[in-house]
């Protein structure tokens, strides 16, 4: 996804303003001018400044491209777009289902799905996915004592 510098500049300015506003509500230390809000406000000012320069500069040099939104890497590249969506879906699956379904199952499904999509034959996909899943699980859970959630598999592990 490519955005015109003008759009990005406006977004950065808006972010800076929002941060500044939030930080105004922070308490002060012993009635002094400083407190938890001081540093975020300095950063917010920096963001507003950077965003404004970005905005102004692009208007001067390339006004036509300033507000363009271009999905250059996705458009006309359905394969690529699908792969990207799969990465997102896999991450969301880990985040939302990780504790209940467990890492090995999600990982295995993710790997098989990717290998098939990327053109591997089913037996290869299953074999490699199983190998990688098992290796990661043995390594992290058994050797390194990381309590990777196993989901329903916990009963058999």
């Amino acid at each position: 996804m490519k955005f015109g510098d003008g759009l990005i500049g406006l977004f950065i300015v808006a972010l800076g303003v929002a941060v500044f506003g939030q930080a105004q509500g922070f308490p002060k230390v012993a009635d002094q001018f400083y407190g938890p809000g001081l540093f975020p406000q300095i950063i917010a000012a920096g963001l507003v400044l950077c965003g404004a320069i970005l905005f102004a500069r692009t208007l001067r040099t390339a006004p036509a491209a300033s507000f363009r939104v271009d999905a250059v890497s996705w458009r006309g590249n359905r394969r690529g777009a699908m792969s990207g969506a799969m990465v997102l879906a896999a991450l969301l699956a880990f985040v939302f289902l990780g504790d209940t379904v467990g890492f090995p199952i999600i990982g295995f499904v993710t790997l098989v799905a990717f290998y098939l999509w990327l053109g591997r034959r089913l037996p290869v996909a299953l074999l490699v996915a199983a190998g990688v899943t098992l290796a990661l699980d043995l390594l992290f859970r058994l050797v390194l004592h990381v309590p990777v959630p196993s989901g329903p598999l916990a009963a058999f592990w």
């Binding site: 043995l138 058994l142 050797v143 009963a155 058999f156 592990w157």
Partner: peptide, 14 residues
Amino acid sequence: ACIAGAVLAMLTLP
């Protein structure tokens, strides 16, 4: 020994 232990653990845990 590690692998043997792991296998043993897997067999007994269920």
